[in-house]
Amino acid sequence: MDFPAFLDQLWLARIPLLKGLGVSISISFLSIVVGTVLGVFVGLALTYGYRPVQWIVRGYTDFIRGTPVLVLVLASYYVLSTVGIDLGPFQAGILALSIFCSSHVGELVRGALQAIPKGQTEAAKAIGLTFPQTFAYVLGPQALRQALPAWVNTAAEMVKASTLLSIIGVAELLLRTQELISRTFMSLEFYFFAGFLYFVINYSIERFGRYVERKTAVPS
């Protein structure tokens, strides 16, 4: 391995690589945010929805979770255009990842809410709280703490899944790296470098999750 030559190439390619990194982070961030917001509603519907609503949403999450993410990405890029919805690769990718994320977050939220003992709701009712108040002050905060560790995992999964968008031509970090490799033939070095960047992103997410967990821990 010629390390100085690699550094040379890295320096030359710094702009496209940084752009790729930026795109990867944007994809991950957007799909985590949209997926989480959607997922909270999915979780609420799964837990408190009327029966028919529960069935429909249950079908949605089971279907999405049973489908490979790559298939979702390809479908939202190629299939949607056949029914007249023309999304660019970036938007189609975000859509697919957000939907994927929402089904996982929905399941997390449902699990967290159902893990709260019934007595909590009953105690809240007994002091005269309405359901929205019970959710806001009693159930929600407890579910949040409960779901946080698994949510961090999901967020890290989304960062990994963002690489799949390279297949529909989104110029994110992996695609930029591959372009670079086809020019320089330094595959080991640049794959390793890209891997390192993904690691840094996910490590930061994990540290952040730990930090929030510590901050919101209940003394006992």
Binding site: G119, Q120, E122, A123, A124, Y137, P141, R145, V218, S220
Partner: peptide, 9 residues
């Protein structure tokens, strides 16, 4: 209640 049901947080 028998199980107290205090809000733990």
């Amino acid at each position: 209640f028998q199980q107290f049901n205090l809000f733990p947080h």
